[in-house]
């Protein structure tokens, strides 16, 4: 029974710390590297270009170059490569399970036979086109995911939110996004604290079933708590003059470095588009 209890605990705490680490780590955004020094607006715009490029390119070699560029940018921004790879490759199984693996086989992608898998009498034929298609797909996903993750971990969360305003994302939407972010954090803190509080009161040897019940009870309570908190936070906003239209300060400053970077990315973008077009001919 103790083993089960430990399992609950380990999975709850593990999930929490993973979430906290991946969504809320400001640590990388505070390091002094290449990407951290760029203006968030320009950075967001250029990364959008990179991601568009990653989606459009049909040539796997060019795509791999783009991926390599992304990894070197990560290094230049003082990001631990192992950490970065772990963070990004975690998305791959999810995507591949649903799209890439079925596409491997002849049923979905007809073509030359590359390998045959004999599964309980069913012959599954992996085709050449299917294989390269899947490879291209995986590379494309990993490249775009990597750029998205790189942007988010080298930019302070609130700067990213502010940058969104530049792309004409409505203010109230950005505000809500910011609040959500805060709430998820608060929510996790409450879960964590409640869990520790239960442990300190009930002791370590919570019976597995009982542990489950406590967790379930607390989830209901949690919603109530966060509902009340929400109402109170709204009051606190009213108290300081909020009347439905938030005013946000814009204090971004661009430097020569930002424009140089933008110039570089645009040249690269055009170059890749040209190469992509030539490769297709």
């Amino acid at each position: 029974m103790l083993k089960n209890n430990n399992f609950i605990e380990r999975s709850i705490m593990g999930a929490l710390s993973f979430l906290k680490e991946s969504v809320f780590a400001d640590e990388y955004a505070l390091r002094k590297g290449l990407l951290q020094s760029l203006d968030p607006r320009i950075k967001a715009a250029t990364f959008l270009l990179f991601i568009i490029q990653a989606i459009l390119i049909k040539d796997i070699l060019i795509l791999l170059c783009l991926y390599a560029l992304c990894l070197s940018l990560a290094c230049l921004s003082k990001i631990n490569l192992g950490f970065f790879l772990k963070r990004t490759w975690i998305f791959i199984p999810l995507f591949s399970l649903f799209i890439a693996i079925p596409a491997l086989f002849s049923v979905f992608t007809p073509g030359e036979t590359l390998a045959v898998i004999d599964l309980l009498g069913f012959k599954l034929i992996i085709t050449r086109q299917g294989f390269f298609g899947a490879l291209l797909f995986v590379t494309r996903v990993i490249t775009s995911v990597s750029f998205a993750v790189l942007l988010s971990i080298t930019t302070k969360h609130f700067e990213l939110l502010k940058a969104l305003r530049i792309f004409k994302v409505p203010q109230i939407f950005v505000m809500i996004l910011g609040m959500c972010y805060r709430y998820i954090y608060l929510f996790m803190e409450i879960i964590e604290n409640t869990y520790t509080a239960i442990k300190s009161r009930v002791g370590l040897e919570v019976h597995y079933k009982r542990g489950q019940r406590i967790v379930a009870l607390n989830i209901a309570f949690l919603w109530y708590r966060s509902y009340r908190l929400n109402e109170e936070v709204y009051n606190a906003m009213l108290s300081r003059g909020y009347d439905g239209e938030p005013v946000i300060l814009h204090d971004f400053k661009t430097s020569a470095k930002d424009w140089l970077w933008l110039f570089f990315v645009i040249i690269l973008f055009m170059g890749l588009t040209y190469l992509g077009a030539k490769a297709r001919v």
Binding site: K156, A236, G241, P246, L249
Partner: peptide
């Protein structure tokens, strides 16, 4: 409720113009 301490402190006066 703001992302940074600074944003939070200046929230009131910003709203009040």
């Amino acid at each position: 409720f703001c992302p940074t301490v600074k944003d939070d402190i200046i929230f009131g006066p910003l709203q009040l113009g």
